[in-house]
Design a protein around this nucleic acid. Sequence first.
DNA 1: GAGTTTCGATACCTCAAGTATCGATACTCA
DNA 2: TGAGTATCGATACTTGAGGTATCGAAACTC
Lengths: 192, 192
Amino acid sequence: MTRATTSARPPGRPRSGVHAVVFAATLSTVHELGYARATVERIAAVAGVAKTTIYRRWPSKGALIVDCLLDAFGPVPLAGTGRAELMTSAIRWIAAKIGEPGVGDAFAGVFSDAVSDPALREVLSSRLQDPYRLALQDALGEPENRVLFFIDVVVGTLLHRMGMTGEPMVDADVAALVEMVLPHFGESAGPA
Amino acid sequence: MTRATTSARPPGRPRSGVHAVVFAATLSTVHELGYARATVERIAAVAGVAKTTIYRRWPSKGALIVDCLLDAFGPVPLAGTGRAELMTSAIRWIAAKIGEPGVGDAFAGVFSDAVSDPALREVLSSRLQDPYRLALQDALGEPENRVLFFIDVVVGTLLHRMGMTGEPMVDADVAALVEMVLPHFGESAGPA
DNA sequence: GAGTTTCGATACCTCAAGTATCGATACTCA
DNA sequence: TGAGTATCGATACTTGAGGTATCGAAACTC
């Protein structure tokens, strides 16, 4: 509006690109200390950045973690053509991600905070879950409530294991999860 | 040893029986404010008890919640004779419990804390989960790892729904959960 | 060099978990 | 009735983390 010039660098000192460094520091710190003990101050120290710099970019610890997870997860991978392959690859993919150092702890931790924080729950839902949900709806041709149920089962199971044992689910159990889920969502199985 | 007398009330002012009042105050406060905002101070006020009195009986907020949940859940209910009935009733029972005011929030909240607190995780596992796990192992004749997987699926799914929406799972989805889980654990289905 | 904006450093605020202290109270026992 | 003991509520405190405010120094543009 007011500033018509196409762009040109705005005046003042440009922001340093700290996102990548902070994300890496976040994951390693969360992996080392766990979610609650990975304080923002500590993450800043590991990243070699001032705490205030982090709060200039992310309004809260939860928002930082969500962005960090978005970065770690990357775009939705929907490999395979058939229904079964599609779902299998999706389950294995999220299980593998949760198994990566720091990612599972961060994921479980931010869900923790969300239990008592409706605002964070909204961010988590709209920024992290919705893109994957919509992609799954599109790829599977299932209605929203069915895909939400699918996500609850898969993510809930994996995170519950992570939360109770502190370790990601082993491959054999992930395979069992796939075997359990697939028949229930097979070939346009009747709606509830 | 030193005090041979069979019992007789020990000297001093006897402890007042505040457990029931505190449990009720805990559930109602957690239901009203959510887990994190239900501070121990507030719970004490609602119960009409001093904060110090609570800390004399429970070493931490987490321990209080676990005891509160133990009280709310009660003994393991294993209704039905057949495998399918047994599992169905177990799933519906835990789903109903999580739907009770305050219970679901408290359950999800204490799991939250456990993510970053190995000691609490241990308490949660040994006092809350193990009794139910052992009863299920006994009733179903399944090995430990299979029952643990069953618990991860059922509890994980229900809590994830609770955590993401703030509401317990609706009956239709609980029914879908039953339908999904039963075939996978039916009639000594082969081990993984 | 003037103007603008971000940087790091530091100090601070707030709030909740958990601890310490202490007089008051409710018992038992002699 | 009174001595002894242990719990009660009240209050003040410590600790730790999230988050904010301030400010001089640095990095850019024009």
